[in-house]
Design a protein around this nucleic acid. Structure first.
Lengths: 131, 131
DNA sequence: CTTACTGTACTATCACAGTAGTACACACGA
DNA sequence: TCGTGTGTACTACTGTGATAGTACAGTAAG
């Protein structure tokens, strides 16, 4: 269970956890019934506070992604994958829309925007390849 | 001077002002020597607090975009346009990189990402057309 | 039963963004 | 000169994100 937390990207830490757990479920990295790392273990791994992880986990319960197995931990709900796949597309699309709206309002024309997109897509591909 | 402030897009209000003033300078909407709306006027127009506008203006001074004309207001610096054009591309590129990185890490493949990009580009184009 | 682990709850503290209100020095124009 | 508008500075307050530490009920395994 490797999450990538970036304290400087505008998103709250607990929100990054929520999103990435959903992405893992959508992707199949986390299967139905599988246990998620405990609050304390995840907090230690990410070098953050257990309360922050607990907050993310509680939200994931509220959204039906995780469920308590009493005394054992939190497990992925059986029917969660479909919803997470829908959420994944929606979450990415929302952020993409924000950036593109700002790009348009900044006065960049469509050709310049597409050029930036192509360049950054290559950059992130290379970053992903290296990691 | 029409700025679009969105309280729900993660960016701080003062940061949105900084970015959009830079964009206006880069675009030529604000020319060198032109006066920017006063702190109180801008605050009234955007229905926010004057202190928030003042904070944005101070940062724009620190970055050499605006300069004080004592007793009169803040004016665009003569050589600011080139720097703002560079900033514009950099700011958009940074946000684009964040989204694309998240998209990659979420498990979406390149084809899906390009599909989302094309769809959202159309959406924002329509939104811009209507406004 | 005991130990160790689980999630959960609670208080306190800190930093930051934003709001609210006030005060001051300066410059322009009547 | 006087009034108005300019940026700037300051304190106080609220809400949120995050940290820190403690405590508790439940469960699995020894």
């Amino acid at each position: 269970m490797f999450l990538h937390i970036d304290a400087h990207n505008g998103l709250a830490v607990y929100d990054q956890i929520v999103r990435q757990v959903k992405f893992a479920v959508a992707d199949g990295t986390l299967s139905a019934g599988e246990l998620v790392p405990s609050v304390r273990e995840m907090a230690k791994e990410l070098a953050i506070n257990p309360n922050t992880v607990a907050r993310a986990y509680r939200q994931l319960q509220d959204e039906g992604v995780l469920a308590v197995v009493r005394g054992t931990g939190l497990a992925v709900e059986s029917g969660a994958r479909r919803g997470c796949q829908a959420d994944r597309k929606r979450l990415i699309r929302e952020r993409l829309n924000d950036v593109l709206t700002e790009a348009h309002l900044s006065g960049l024309d469509e050709a310049q925007i597409q050029e930036l997109f192509a360049a950054e897509l290559e950059t992130t591909k290379r970053q992903r390849g290296k990691s």
